[in-house]
Amino acid sequence: MEVLEGRGLVKRYPNTVAVDGVHFRLRKGEILGLLGPNGAGKSTLIGMLSTLIPPSEGEILLDGIDVLKNPNIIRNRLGVVPQEIALYPDLTGEENLLFFGRVYGLKGKALRRRVEEVLEIINLTDRARERVGRYSGGMKRRINIGAALLHRPEILFMDEPTVGIDPQSRRLILDTIKDLNREGLTILYTSHYMEEVDFLCDRIYIMDHGKIIADGTKEELIARISNEETIELDFERNGKEFLPALEGLPGVHAVHQRGAKIEIVVEKGMVSLGKIVHLAENSKTSLLSVEVKKPTLEDLFLHLTGRGLRE
């Protein structure tokens, strides 16, 4: 059942169209991933859905009620974890939570109790009385999430909540998100990290240049490129003629050079490894390894846009 729906959402700025006719549905209890490179329009879409950015066109419905006409109906039911650390660095973690709890109308013992609960959820009870400015990147990210949980929202928007942190903190945050979802929280999760979306999300929207270019479950999306496979070549020396020769092979859809490696997207069963080895020999390219990879969301994005997610 859709809890939140965006219809034909457009956001125009003087020199650009950040979001261009997006149709969007968030179902109760799911984790919906919004995957796309930087500048794809993910944050603008979240800004519109959370009523901070007025759309140029389109409508947003929460349980069928027009949010743009009644913005207050969504505000108490929604928590937003912004991409930036939206906290006061000169206040302690606890003071920040107490303040934002009060902003959401919590008071007295109930507020104290909720702050303690949230500190436990984000695993920061021990460091709660230190100033946020002295926290590590991972701790700041966790308290940034905590501030959005204080008022027990039903829906949580998380805009790239793991940017710039170490793998250990990332893992902790991803596990916390899974736990929150298990407890019934509906989550919209944006990222340009394919692995995170892959790990967390039930359904995925892929966004680029302000448009949703694909959506579905991970399996549905991967199935779109099931007739393709990716071959990754690692080589010691690359002959000049090798790349053009690869591109000229029948069944090769795309060739991408990534540092010392080359990825070839080929039609399944159309290109044999023997042909590739033969071409390498002819162009005096000395290969170190050849690997056939399972298709990923990254491959899908590459397939759809011709670019990598992090390019």
Binding site: L52, R75, P82, L87, V103, A147
Partner: peptide, 9 residues
């Protein structure tokens, strides 16, 4: 600090 948006939200 983006706290402005958090308060508006």
């Amino acid at each position: 600090l983006h706290t402005y948006e958090r308060i508006l939200l």
